[in-house]
């Protein structure tokens, strides 16, 4: 239960007081904060409309002349709202958050190469090492850099495909809520996306360095 700083009514935690419409600094999960059903598939249009609607009601700009107590509630409620919106808007962040809600967490800085990516990763790393060793400005370095650029678009395409697959699976998982399988599959696909993301970042950094040199 939470008490409204404006009218004093005690109520179920929400971001807005059911009585007077003032902001409430409630601790809520991302779905509850935005009043969205706890599902992996989300109607992004509805999500944005809801976010804008709630922002108009609780944003600190609306309470600039209120007493400190209400200003503080508005600040905290809006912080919860914006963080929830960002999490749910992005499919990968939403998937990771779903795992977290179910007591699972992707290992940070996962070094284990997802098996289906093994070959690709091996080739990229070989090229990056070659680029690192080749003398700057040499023909070999330029050629390798061109290869890495081509490889980068391949990585990006693989990543885009994984993200599309993630969203396709969201629909499937929502219809067949077999918790155990779902968690396993979700984890597998999210860790390969996370792995690709790190790899692309490494490639970008290597390309940036070779440009600087």
């Amino acid at each position: 239960m939470i008490e409204c700083p404006s009218c004093g009514r005690r109520q179920q935690p929400l971001l807005i007081c059911a009585d007077c419409g003032s902001p409430l600094a409630a601790t809520l999960d991302c779905f509850a904060a935005l009043g969205m059903p706890r599902k992996l598939t989300i109607d992004l249009g509805a999500l944005e409309r809801r976010y804008h609607e709630l922002s108009r009601m609780i944003h600190p700009d609306r309470f600039a002349s209120s007493v400190a107590r209400v200003r503080d509630a508005s600040l905290r409620a809006t912080a919860t709202l914006t963080r929830s919106y960002r999490t749910l808007r992005d499919p990968v962040a939403r998937g990771l958050y779903w795992l977290e809600l179910n007591g699972e967490k992707l290992a940070e800085n996962n070094k284990r190469v997802p098996p289906e990516l093994a070959e690709l990763v091996f080739e990229v790393q070989e090229q990056l090492a070659g680029m690192h060793d080749a003398p700057a400005d040499s023909d070999a370095a330029c050629e390798l850099a061109a290869q890495v650029v081509a490889r980068r678009s391949q990585l990006q395409a693989t990543m885009d495909a994984s993200r599309a697959e993630l969203e396709r699976n969201f629909v499937k998982w929502d219809q067949r809520p077999d918790e155990k399988m779902l968690t396993l599959e979700l984890k597998a696909i999210l860790s390969s996306i996370a792995y690709l993301r790190t790899l692309i970042r490494d490639v970008d950094r290597a390309l940036e360095n070779s440009k600087a040199a």
């Binding site: 600040l75 905290r76 912080a79 914006t82 963080r83 919106y85 960002r86």
Partner: peptide, 8 residues
């Protein structure tokens, strides 16, 4: 580029 106010 995270929208503010925000908290973690």
């Amino acid at each position: 580029n995270t929208t503010i106010p925000t908290s973690v």
